[in-house]
Design a protein around this nucleic acid. Structure first.
Lengths: 192, 192
DNA sequence: ACAGATACTAGTACCAGGTCATAATTTTTT
DNA sequence: AAAAAATTATGACCTGGTACTAGTATCTGT
């Protein structure tokens, strides 16, 4: 061992490796090894010790994750997870926030994520095949930050014909951050 | 050739192949071949003729696309493309809609995409490092459908201290589908 | 100064999931 | 029956690895 810190030299390399992989997860062991100035074997050893899977596995995971992320973010019926649901009465949904949802370099969440969760739950709480939002009004009471768990609770209010008023309150812990009222409408037939 | 439609038998198989790949792009040639009831060679031939790359290439592309989609869908500053901008006056943004933005099996767009575009432009039109939405009110005037091009126009109204009123009108062609009014707020310092 | 630990390098055999090219076989058409 | 089209088989090769073995520095405590 080096007089002082060869152990850390290895650790350091592994940290560099982690960073490299974060920047460019599509790098082969070859490339990584030459970037780190060590042999491919050493690289592989490090990678094994760090529990980092091989390139193909990494790529595969990215692709899958991407699919699920797209599903949970854009394709899903609900933004957030629907935890409890009493149709036409009330519902509860939870959204775990991530860095991607943040506004520029801040930790503050984009409002449209908060909105999307609220609107999704307002639609989900009504029991019908096709429900759309007709109008809404909302107020942000405070900022939500990356890492916060958003809890949205929808309550169905008065209804008239095919329209329901749904109030949604979103909070982080005890703090209320968004209050909205949606008027949702059941579509009887697919209107062209 | 079969008396009638062997040409289509091959074409048909290729169509089935395309569909299989769409459902499950992570399938190996082996799996695909057995699903289609032909040999691996034939499968590969079809795949080659159709210009479909091998599994690893497909997965790789998915992963990359995912990255860019995530950037454009969740990480970007703006939902939609900012076409014109006169800071603190007005702005214009365009959003091309896709199948993923649709509500369940219908062609109707989820309202939160419309909202996200509107809110993004309302924030973008104000010239400051950090702007957030304080409150809003909005009304959907009609449905937008998959394939529609949403045009959102933001106008900055009166301001007071650090708050601006921004009106956003979204239309598809000549038809107005969403009208909203946002109160945006400039954050002077990163509030913790 | 020297054994032993720690770190690194090198090399081999093997695998999945292919590519590419060529040949053989089957099916269909004329 | 002969020609043409479609399908299947075969073998050599590639990438980016895994798993394992063996050898070589380099440092360290004693």
């Amino acid at each position: 061992m080096e007089a002082f810190g060869i152990k850390s030299e290895k650790k350091l390399r592994q940290q560099r490796l982690a960073k490299l992989l974060e920047d460019n997860p599509m790098a082969t062991d070859q490339e990584l090894a030459s970037l780190l100035g060590v042999s491919v074997s050493t690289m592989r050893l490090d990678r094994a010790l760090m529990g980092v899977p091989e390139l193909r596995e990494r790529v595969k995971r990215m692709a899958q994750e991407a699919g699920s992320k797209l599903r949970s973010l854009s394709q899903s019926e609900i933004v957030g997870d629907l935890l409890e649901l009493e149709p036409n009465r009330w519902a509860l949904s939870v959204l775990r926030t991530t860095r991607e949802m943040a506004f520029r370099t801040t930790d503050i969440l984009w409002d449209h994520y908060i909105y999307a969760q609220a609107s999704s739950i307002a639609v989900a709480v009504i029991e019908a095949a096709a429900v759309i939002v007709d109008s809404m009004r909302g107020e942000y009471k405070g900022h939500a930050h990356v890492g916060d768990v958003l809890i949205a609770r929808a309550k169905v209010g008065v209804s008239k014909d095919n329209r329901y008023i749904v109030s949604v309150r979103t909070r982080v812990g005890e703090k209320e951050i968004f209050v909205a009222r949606f008027i949702t409408e059941i579509l009887s037939v697919e209107t062209p």
